[in-house]
């Protein structure tokens, strides 16, 4: 990947203005390099690594769960072990799968900060980190899901997971009906980031 700046700069500040925190970030990075806590190459490597993390990895895992019941069972036991089977490097932070069923819809939040399985799904969306989402989804999940266009029927229980400590979560949505003929890759294409947070469901519209 190209495009790394060898020196920190204010890349988007066309008018020459920048925030104090932006300056502080550049200064902290420069000081850590000078103090030999890490090298510029370490930073470049980390930028590459984190740019490579996307929801596509999580979607692959979900599609495999849909097509392989034994794999799905192993994922319910340990997402980390399932990811290794797919050749994904998601590190040692424990990721727990919570599966939607015809009777339970799961949705994720971290009210205290914004914990998220970034090695499996990439960056969390801005709204996931927002005060409004963090405050409201634990108290009025159905209203929040409605705002996302998801109306959960009364006979389906909503289960909110507040990720407060050492575990991270991924929602395993149900496979949409009428998709049994699709390949694993095509199935993965139905699984969006929000499906794995629980604010959306996979949709299949036949061609």
């Amino acid at each position: 990947m190209s495009g790394h700046h060898p020196h920190p700069g204010p890349p988007d500040s066309e008018d020459g203005s920048w925030t104090r925190e932006q300056l502080m970030a550049a200064a902290v990075e420069a000081l850590l390099v000078r103090k030999r806590v890490f090298t510029p190459a370490d930073v470049a490597g980390a930028l590459d690594y984190w740019a490579s993390r996307t929801p596509a990895d999580g979607a692959r895992l979900i599609a495999r769960c849909w097509t392989d019941d034994a794999f799905a069972a192993r994922v319910m036991d340990s997402v980390n072990a399932g990811a290794v089977e797919l050749g994904l490097d998601i590190g040692h932070t424990r990721v727990v799968a919570v599966a939607n069923t015809p009777k339970i819809h799961n949705v994720l939040v971290c009210t205290l900060c914004s914990c998220y399985p970034i090695r499996l799904l990439g960056d969390s969306p801005g709204w996931y980190k927002s005060r409004a989402y963090r405050s409201r989804v634990v108290r009025e999940p159905r209203a929040v899901l409605s705002e996302f266009g998801l109306d959960i029927p009364d006979d389906v229980d909503v289960r909110v997971h507040d990720s407060t400590a050492d575990l991270r979560y991924i929602v395993v949505p149900m496979q949409p009906t009428g998709t049994e003929h699709l390949t694993e890759q095509e199935l993965a294409g139905l699984v969006t980031r929000d499906c794995m947070i629980g604010t959306a469901l996979p949709r299949y519209i036949p061609a």
Binding site: V138, R139, E140, D157, V158, R159, V160, D162
Partner: peptide, 20 residues
């Protein structure tokens, strides 16, 4: 949820799971 919030709007089976 109904144990957490007396005025909770939703199903009686709605729950919250937290890591403690």
């Amino acid at each position: 949820q109904r144990d957490l919030w007396p005025d909770y709007v939703g199903s009686s089976g709605d729950t919250l799971v937290v890591d403690l």
